[in-house]
Amino acid sequence: MTNLTNTISKKNKHFSMNVFILVLAIIGAVLPLIWDNPYTMQILILIFLYAAAAGAWNIIGGYAGQVSLGHVAFFGLGAYTTALLYNFFGISPWIGMILGGILAAVVAGLISYPCFRLRGPFFTLATLAFAEVLRLLSIWARPLTGGQVGVTILFNPGFKNFQFFGKTPYYYIALILMFLVLIVSIWIERSKFGYYLTALKEDHDASEALGINTAKYKLYAIAISGFLTGLCGAFYTQLLLFIEPLSVFTSHLSNQFAMIAVVGGAGTAVGPILGSVIITPLNELLRGALGGDFQGLNFVIFGAILILVVTFMPNGLVGFFKDMKAKINHRSESK
């Protein structure tokens, strides 16, 4: 009997989540048809992009609890791979995107492996340092990357070249990217892999004793996370058609990816989307409105938000809503 109710409640939970995703997808798909304003479109594209990148971060940082502060490294690898393969060899950015993602995944694995054999803060420190190393290398390797000047992607619009005149195609691609990350996250949540990641986040020794090869699963997680982050970087290249070390290897982006996930709710599939819906427009607003006069104000505010969230809402907005719901349910039950 209990077995039955359990499976039913689980099915219900899955069902409502599936419905939620479907509704979100439909809204996302029809929105440009009714509200086709370039500025709004631009903001929405960024919301999706950041939600995707934060969601990718969330796979290793949230589910597996291994905090990376250098995810921009994988973003930048995706971005540069796509740009350089297209400019030097004329390889379609669609293929460049996949190759960039794969490169990011492999590099992520190589950097993380020594850290995952150990416990402690090594992974966080290694990612932080590695991102800085890539930034410096991208400046240094001038013949390849153009150094500080950056790379301008040769403009030749068309689907094959992943370049478009209007914003709408970018909008749909960003939307798909976000949903890809969301679906991967949900798959993780509902599979053995997700259970294992949560377990190793909670207790390393107990996980090992229960047969979890913790290093291996963390490695899978960082590879998936790196791949998806690489895709985001590639998309960014095609969106702006110009990249430079300052824009795709900046520690600001690493912080932003992590912060969006944490504010929304790390270790949940919708957390990064929720976080991006709040943080990304706020960021654009603060930069746009106050820009020149108060350079850095956005990050002062975000830093403060980050401190407040982890201190008072350690499970982010999703956790906060869950607690609220539990309280309301509890109250109605006691009545």
């Binding site: 599979s191 053995k192 377990a199 229960l210």
Partner: peptide, 11 residues
């Protein structure tokens, strides 16, 4: 369940 996943891949 985490323990049980040692012997199965199915949720």
């Amino acid at each position: 369940m985490v323990g049980a996943f040692n012997v199965t891949n199915s949720v």
